[in-house]
């Protein structure tokens, strides 16, 4: 099994991840091992996380985004899991709110194609290199991206 998060502890584990990519920072305010990475280094980091034997994150459990409207940025959240070692990692990446574009992870984990389509559909984040970027839940002609905090719709009920 080698070094896993179980034998290493969260901090040493995060150190190992951050050693892969110098631009990586520890992500505070998270209940599990988490790192933050600039978008320029996202693809290399993810590839290393998948291919590095001691980490071997072979499953992309989840991908989603958070709309930090006050800071004018989106936060992309990736949750990775390794079926080999049984450890988890949260990777976050911040991109500007205007013209948001991130590289696709579809080449690394095929499921990313559809998880990214969901994020595109609901947040309007574009994925560079995505081969089939379409609306997922909403119809093709839909205006706006509903999970953005400033989304309005004529049929929307105002929250109390």
């Amino acid at each position: 099994m080698g070094d896993t998060i179980g034998t290493m502890g969260t901090e040493a584990f995060e150190q190992l991840v951050m050693g892969l990519e110098p631009q990586c920072r520890k992500r505070e305010q998270s209940d599990c091992a988490a790192v933050d990475v600039p978008v320029s280094a996202l693809e290399t980091l993810m590839r290393n996380l998948r291919d590095e034997v001691r980490l071997s994150f072979d499953m992309l459990l989840d991908h989603t985004a958070i709309d930090h409207i006050q800071d004018g940025r989106f936060e992309l959240v990736y949750l990775l899991y390794s079926t080999r070692h049984g450890h988890h990692l949260m990777v976050t990446c911040e991109i500007p709110r205007t013209d948001p574009i991130a590289p696709t992870m579809g080449d690394l984990w095929p499921i990313a194609h559809w998880q990214e389509r969901e994020v595109f559909d609901l947040f309007g984040i574009g994925y560079d290199g995505h081969l089939d970027l379409r609306r997922l839940f909403l119809e093709d002609g839909w205006q706006g991206y509903p999970l953005r905090k400033d989304y309005t719709d004529p049929d929307m009920l105002e929250p109390a």
Binding site: I101, D128, R135
Partner: peptide
């Protein structure tokens, strides 16, 4: 980086 959006 460029993004192409497709339709069904």
């Amino acid at each position: 980086m460029s993004v192409t959006v497709r339709t069904l």
